[in-house]
Design a protein around this nucleic acid. Structure first.
Lengths: 208, 208
DNA sequence: TAATCAATATACTGATGAGTATATAAAAGA
DNA sequence: TCTTTTATATACTCATCAGTATATTGATTA
């Protein structure tokens, strides 16, 4: 397979489809940033287009409609969370350690553009169909958190807390930065994640 | 002063101004419920009016404009939080006990119509002026939480945690029900509040 | 009783914004 | 070279919704 040596204005089929994919991603990134900054309803696709120096029909060329733009953004975030959950379930070590590692990643994702969008999107803005899928995928993540807590309790690394309410509390504490964290502020996502997880894991540590 | 003995269609001045106040409150309650259910932008004042069987100009007769409706709703919630914070600061007992009592009340307020509105309203939807005031009042509540934690650490009833991050975690854990709690669901606000506070206070208990 | 005020409605204006019809130009394929 | 496809734009339509102009009715006050 010969790779092209000089930059040419004539692209191969793969190059073209990769370019298309890149443009799609650029649209999604611009959109999610505006959605996060102003809220889904207050952010218009005209604004999204303007922020990329393109026109609205171009967005429709790459994505079906406004809701689908949101759905794709949310899917990006959910995929990251899902991957983190899968890794945690496959990891070895005590339940406590695996939960801890997972929560750090979870908290950081919630400060990422697409992760924030997952948290900030409430299902009323979605069509009934999308909302159902959205809830189901979030429930999977929540199930992983509960599994990890239960496993930790079983192996003695986590105090025998109420699993359901512990997962509510953990989720709340680690979702909340999606609403207040300022990416341009002095606190780095890593630091917030670590410190928050330190505090919340304190409550799960078995008493001596 | 003679009180009226028979129901009359002729109201006294106080009765009239009380009625006016009642109507204002009814508008706010209907509005906050729709704002919470659909989001501020998606809930129109026409819908709010329809839910009360009145017309939109009537809302404008009692309240200036849509933003002011929201601001009044948020103020109702903030007033409840403020009262809870004041009581906590005046209460006696260890820092731990006072914080615990305050947090229970805080969590319950966050499941009340107006309390939910405080949590669900992000300042981008407000005018710059209102947003500034809103942030300031929320900061007061947060300061009370930090004070209580610090006092608990000082009197030894709370473990020497990072005050700032502990308050972030507590707020997140107890704000989150404002986004998922279903008033018609099986879990009563009281129970959610108690159990959540149990879990989160575990992390603040000094180790033996 | 005349003048005013309070409470309410109907019917409008004007802006915004989602989504579309249509044109164009360039590239790809036949 | 002719045709089709892809990427993009301009300029619309149509719906929604905040906010207003104006009318009406009944009670209050002078």
């Amino acid at each position: 397979m010969s790779k092209q040596l000089t930059a040419s204005p004539f692209r191969s089929r793969e190059e073209r489809s990769r370019e298309r994919e890149e443009k799609r991603e650029a649209v999604l990134l611009a959109a999610v940033r505006l959605f996060n900054a102003r809220g889904y309803h207050a952010a218009s696709l005209d604004d999204v287009a303007a922020s990329l120096g393109i026109s609205k029909p171009t967005i429709y060329h790459y994505l079906g409609n406004k809701e689908q733009v949101l759905v794709e953004c949310v899917n990006r975030g959910l995929a990251m969370l899902r991957a983190a959950a899968d890794d945690a379930m496959r990891a070895q070590g005590s339940g406590f350690d695996r939960l801890r590692a997972f929560l750090c990643r979870y908290a950081k994702i919630n400060m990422d553009d697409f992760g924030r969008c997952v948290i900030r999107t409430s299902d009323e803005v979605l069509s009934m169909d999308s909302a159902t899928r959205f809830r189901a995928r979030k429930r999977e993540i929540d199930a992983a958190v509960r599994d990890l807590i239960a496993q930790g309790i079983a192996d003695g690394s986590i105090a025998p807390v109420d699993v359901r309410f512990a997962s509510f509390a953990l989720a709340g504490a680690l979702n909340w930065p999606a609403r207040w964290h300022d990416p341009d502020g002095p606190l780095a996502p890593e630091e917030i994640a670590e410190r928050l997880v330190d505090v919340v894991m304190g409550g799960l540590t078995p008493r001596a």
